[in-house]
Design a protein around this nucleic acid. Structure first.
Length: 482
RNA sequence: GCGGCUAUAGUUCAGUGGCAGAACGCCGCUCUGUGGCAGCGGAUGUCGUGGGUUCGAAACCCACUAGCCGCCCCA
């Protein structure tokens, strides 16, 4: 019988990699909380119609990439309902906003989500059929200020902060405005007019796009067509006064906050619902993503709620490709992030197993991560297992149990000390804290091209020094005992 | 959806038609209270799956599956 495998484009996430996933998600949750976002969890599948109306019938996502099926009808007289695994989460959030009449609170809604999405694309590095997005939406009735440029800038500044806290290096924010729902048709018409005389000179793909979706011509990477594309009309010249002013306000706020960005007049997004501000964060080559270098994307969607039959509810949101974020962090990591335990407890002989387990229980209760060996292990085997798993080994032998003074071996330093049981937790803990701060300083020390990284480094360094000196005090005290 | 490359031990890979290999890792012994070294020994396996050519296939041919690269698209 053929062995069963994860289906094409899906994969298992295993330790120790899941550790990194958890850190990314915990960091995202902490940042979102500081900016006043609450979590929303919407269903993995929705009525197909939601995505057709929200994302757009003509987009590739809806027209060829969705997992759609007919759900069984309840009665013979009923038509089966067409359902779809969500290919993105914004439509679901807005559907939920409408369904629960969130607009009636009159307040701005700030919602974030973390979860899997599904698109039937050909798998590649950084592109999977089940992939994870971390996203957030800010929306509400216009009188809640949901259409204000300050919301756009706040979301972008939050993303810059999040990427810096995660330690993503070299990110680049590309920004554009695609105009209001009336600007866009005028611009598309102008594009068509400008493309008409020149499109015959362009590559096959661009000729097709010129017909079906002229905006996408701007995305083209074909080197031969670049001169023609650069000469095409710019969206900026087709924005009405309100949209132009809105975009200027977004840029002014970003400047004030020190968030670096590049205005890219060719940045157009593929989903129909985007209006005004659109953006994309990319990472440099060599960050583990190949050509899938877009880490996250998003934009404003002032008309989406109405497209779904809801009240007017302007909004802005983004989605981070979590799989890509993880790949980037892994590629950029200076050293492997395999986390070691605080201590490995090595019982000397089967008779010491109960004492070792008791010690492990106490250390674990004190918040330390601990693994226990086996008294049948040879000392050498204990050493090898301990060195692989932990920073330190605590030897539990007959002498130790009767005297109450334990031997602690530090693998990195190659030293060992005798520590009375009463001091054991403090000694192990202070070193562990120092290790944590050192790791933190290593990680955030690189986030230099964003916000406030300098100040955070100082705090981390200071804390590290304190922890190390505390650890040394405790150690020297315990050495006197021995 | 299109084009290309790849698939052999836990991992990285070698193997151009004649006994299934190396390195690292793993297990054991030298060696049951101070290891990491060294020496000796051991197990690695549906050679992605299915078919075909051949006296003989990991190798050549076909199909399929999966991964990767480039498009398309997107996060």
């Amino acid at each position: 019988m053929a062995t069963l495998k994860a289906v094409r484009g899906t994969r298992d996430l295993l330790p120790p990699e899941t550790e990194l996933w958890n850190r990314v998600e915990a960091t995202a949750r902490a940042v979102f909380a500081r900016y006043g976002f609450g979590e929303i969890r919407t269903p993995l599948f929705e009525a197909t119609e939601l995505f057709a109306r929200g994302v757009g019938e003509e987009t590739d996502i809806v027209s060829k990439e969705m997992y759609t099926w007919d759900d069984r009808a309840r009665a013979a007289s009923e038509k089966p309902q067409s359902l779809t695994l969500r290919p993105e989460n914004t439509a679901g959030v807005v559907r939920s906003y409408i369904e629960h009449k969130m607009d009636e609170s009159g307040l701005l809604q700030k919602l974030f989500y973390i979860g899997p999405q599904f698109r039937r694309e050909r798998p590649q590095r950084g592109r999977y059929r089940q992939f994870w997005q971390i996203g957030a939406e800010v929306l509400g009735p216009a009188w809640s200020g949901s259409d204000s440029a300050v919301r756009d800038a706040e979301v972008l500044e939050m993303l810059a902060t999040l990427l810096n806290e995660l330690g993503v290096k070299g990110w680049r924010l590309a920004l554009n405005s695609v105009g209001s729902s009336t600007d866009r048709p005028r611009y598309i018409a102008a594009l068509r007019t400008a493309l008409e005389p020149v499109k015959a000179q362009m590559c096959e793909d661009n000729q097709r796009r010129a017909e079906t979706n002229p905006l996408r011509v701007l995305d083209s990477k074909d080197p031969n067509d670049q001169d023609i594309i650069n000469a095409l009309p710019k969206i900026a010249d087709y924005l009405d006064d309100a949209s132009r002013d809105h975009f200027e306000q977004v840029k002014a706020s970003l400047d004030a906050c020190g968030v670096p960005y590049v205005v890219d007049p060719r940045l157009v997004r593929g989903l129909d619902y985007y209006t005004r501000t659109t953006f994309e964060f990319t990472v440099p080559d060599g960050s583990g993503l190949g050509t899938q270098n877009a880490l996250l994307g998003g934009g404003r969607y002032d008309g989406l709620s109405e497209m779904l039959g809801g009240p007017k509810a302007p909004g802005i949101g983004f989605a981070i490709g979590e799989d890509r974020l993880i790949l980037t962090l892994q590629a950029q990591a200076a050293e492997a992030v395999t986390k070691k335990l605080d201590a490995f407890i090595a019982p000397m002989g089967i008779g010491q197993n109960p004492a070792a387990l008791l010690l492990a229980k106490e250390l674990r209760a004190a918040g330390l991560t601990v693994e226990v060996g086996d008294g049948t292990f040879r000392l050498r085997k204990s050493f090898e297992a301990a060195d692989k798993l932990a920073h330190r080994m605590v030897i539990v032998g007959e002498d130790e149990v009767s005297s109450g003074v334990f031997t602690v071996k530090y693998f990195e330093a190659g030293e060992q000390v005798k520590v009375p049981r009463s001091e054991l937790i403090n000694v192990l803990k202070s070193y562990s804290i120092a290790m944590q701060y050192r790791a933190e300083a290593n990680r955030t020390g690189y986030a230099s091209d964003g916000l406030m990284a300098d100040r955070r480094d100082e705090v981390a360094k200071e804390a590290l020094e304190n922890a190390v000196s505390l650890a040394q005090q405790v150690l020297s005290k315990s050495e006197k005992h021995s």
